[in-house]
Structure formats: structure tokens, C-alpha cells
């Protein structure tokens, strides 16, 4: 018979993993929804919109990472370290863009090149972190989706990529169904595939980084302004 032992360690009030995960999902949906809604009269409308979107994306990522770190103690896996490396790379590219593109600088490339590259690095980082979370749960990771919802998410991802470079590029926001389908697949149907993870973060990472750049430039003094 076990004798109850009173622990000498003080009880720390901790945020439960489920609460953190659910907050991350809710904030992710909020960020994606507000990103598509037009902003009101500038400048207050722009600032509110950009703050809500960037804040929601950042807090969503933070709570998601915190949930995984708390669930698995510390995510000290190879995949986790590679995710961190690509995140630092993305931040470094963004910082370089801010430094290089001072007013009056003549460069052979536009800032979009830097921001797009940073987007790809951020996408890779997010996908690797999600895969690290899958592996820490002890799940087998496949490349192709394992559930019908995951397959539909992959289809919408491809449709979005094709639309973006077609004459109907204005309809690309309809491919915002890919992150929604991937969310349902990963959360409700335990889809643990690489394509589902990519469908979840590819579009939102690009959106988040471009709006983040817009957000920074709201507070940077422009010559002649």
C-alpha cells in the first residue's frame, strides 16, 4: 500500500497543456480571419489591424511552443534544434532586410526577395517544429496524408499555389481552406503527415511575415513623410 508522501517542492500553478494548445489554435484562427478583413480609416485602422494580426500570430506561436515544451518537458530533439536554426535564419534575413534597405540605397534586388526567403525559412522552421512535436508524442510520421481531411488540405495547398500564378490569382484567398482543413485533420483526426503540416503553415507563414513587415514600416519614418 502506497504511503502518501508530502512533497517538499512547492506547488507551482502551471498553465495546463490543453489550455495552451487551445489558445494557440484560437489565436491562429483569429489571426487568419482578421488578416483577410479590410482595415478602417488610416492611420488608426491600419495600426489596429496590423497589431491584432501580428500579435495573434506571435501569441499563437508562443502558446503553441509553450504547450509543446511543457508537455514534453524540453523539446531537445534534433528536429527541434533544426526548427530553431531555421527560425533564427528567418529572423536574420528579416533583420538584414531592415538594415540594407535604408532610404536611398541602390540595390539590384527588391525587399520582397528578402521577405520571401525569410518566409520560406519560417515555413521550414514551423513544419520541423510540428514534426518534432509529432515525434515527441511517439507517433509515426508519414509524408503523404493519412486521413481524407489531410488529403483535401494537400489538394487545397496545391490549388492555392497554382491559382497564385494564374490569371485568376485574385481568388487565391479561397485556398485559405488549406490551413483550416489541416487544422481539423491534425487536431480531430490525428493526421501526422508532413504534407498536412506544410498545408497548415505555408500560407499563414507568408501572410504573417508580409503583414509583420507592413507592421514594422508603420512605425518607421519615411523620407518626405
Amino acid at each position: 500500500m502506497a504511503i502518501p508522501i508530502s512533497s517538499p517542492i512547492a506547488h507551482r500553478p502551471a498553465l495546463p497543456v490543453v489550455w495552451l494548445s487551445r489558445t494557440a489554435v484560437v489565436l491562429f484562427i483569429v489571426a487568419m480571419t482578421v488578416a483577410s478583413i479590410p482595415f478602417g480609416e488610416p492611420p488608426t485602422g491600419e495600426v489596429i489591424w496590423a497589431t491584432v494580426v501580428v500579435g495573434s500570430f506571435v501569441l499563437s506561436a508562443a502558446t503553441g511552443i509553450a504547450a509543446q515544451v511543457r508537455k514534453h518537458r524540453v523539446a531537445r530533439t534534433r528536429l527541434g534544434y533544426w526548427a530553431l536554426a531555421f527560425f533564427i535564419l528567418s529572423a536574420a534575413i528579416m533583420a538584414a532586410a531592415q538594415v540594407l534597405f535604408t532610404p536611398g540605397a541602390q540595390l539590384p534586388v527588391t525587399p520582397d526577395v528578402f521577405i520571401s526567403t525569410a518566409t520560406y525559412a519560417l515555413t521550414v522552421s514551423a513544419v520541423l517544429f510540428i514534426l518534432a512535436a509529432f515525434r515527441a508524442d511517439g507517433e509515426t510520421i508519414r509524408f503523404l496524408p493519412t486521413t481524407p481531411v489531410g488529403w483535401w488540405a494537400a489538394v487545397f495547398l496545391v490549388v492555392g499555389l497554382v491559382l497564385a500564378y494564374s490569371p485568376w490569382a485574385v481568388l487565391t484567398p479561397a485556398a485559405g481552406a488549406a490551413p483550416a482543413l489541416a487544422l481539423a485533420g491534425i487536431i480531430s483526426y490525428r493526421d501526422r503527415s508532413v504534407l498536412a503540416a506544410i498545408a497548415l503553415v505555408a500560407g499563414p507563414a507568408q501572410l504573417a511575415l508580409f503583414i509583420f513587415t507592413f507592421f514594422i514600416n508603420l512605425f518607421v519614418l519615411h523620407p518626405g513623410a
Binding site: 487568419m32 483577410s36 478583413i37 483535401w152 487545397f156 479561397a174 485559405g176 481552406a177 482543413l181 481539423a184
Partner: peptide, 22 residues
């Protein structure tokens, strides 16, 4: 106005179809 609601509308359609079909 269209851009604000096309994403969630497409998501709801796709998710509903997946539920109905699969």
C-alpha cells in the same frame, strides 16, 4: 468584402463536403 469571407466560406464548404463524403 469578398476577400474577407471567401477564406472561411471555402473552409466551411470543404470541411462540410469532407464530412458528407468521407
Amino acid at each position: 468584402l469578398g476577400q474577407a469571407c471567401v477564406g472561411p466560406a471555402a473552409s466551411a464548404t470543404a470541411l462540410g463536403l469532407v464530412g458528407i463524403i468521407h
